[in-house]
Design a protein around this nucleic acid. Structure first.
Lengths: 114, 114
DNA sequence: GATCTTTTATCTAGATTGTAGATTTATCTT
DNA sequence: AAGATAAATCTACAATCTAGATAAAAGATC
């Protein structure tokens, strides 16, 4: 996570994706959410390794899919964001907001009004 | 920068620190700004390596300190954020804002009102 | 002008984070 | 039992983050 307490960009995004999915966040759905909101493909590997790391740090918890859901395929592993994870998101947001305070992006001149 | 177009956490902070310093952003002042706003020490190495990387990517430009400034010590290298850098910040902000959309942090229960 | 002091930049190296995609596993279907 | 399907795990490399030690470029002092 780094000294400042700010989460890595991707870790933050994954955490938020899990949050968005509520009780039904699992690898594939998290990946879908991420791709949708970031407007770019995200690989399975990227998602799962990051989830592992977040779990090691105690930011998320893994939960086995209900035995009631009868579908084909390997059982899902659902994820929940734990209070520590919420706290990490909060710190991240707070510090970043301080960094952005007063910044006004000067409209980067994309190429011309012709 | 990663596939999503979102800057690394620290890269973003450095870019913002440079912006905050306007025309007078150089290693030491950038580091100071960063430490102040993030409420934690940041090492010289962290700052300079990141600036190098940002320069390679064309997000900032290095400029030698004015010969008029007569001070002791090694001359400063000032940094400016280039339009590409502004654009990167913009993309970063936009995507992240999409990721945060609708998220309400559930007040992580810090330990009790006792 | 040689040495000292000050200020800043550069270098090195290791740890953490980001990324892709191939492979494996678990489960239902036929 | 074999096939189809859905999802997780594994592997390995690339990029980013980070610290601190070392080097360099001045002006000051004698």
């Amino acid at each position: 996570m780094g000294k400042t307490g700010v989460l890595g960009s991707f870790e933050e995004m994954v955490l938020l994706a899990v949050l968005h999915q509520g009780d039904h966040a699992y690898g594939v759905s998290i990946r879908r959410e991420l791709s949708r909101r970031s407007e770019s493909d995200v690989s399975m590997g990227a998602v799962y390794t990051t989830l592992d790391r977040l779990e090691e740090k105690g930011f998320v918890r893994q939960r086995r899919g209900e035995p009631t859901e009868s579908r084909r395929g390997r059982p899902r592993q659902y994820y929940d964001v734990l209070p520590t994870g919420i706290a990490a998101l909060d710190v991240t947001r707070r510090i970043r907001s301080t960094m952005w305070e007063g910044v006004e992006l000067p409209a980067a001149d994309p190429g011309g009004t012709r």
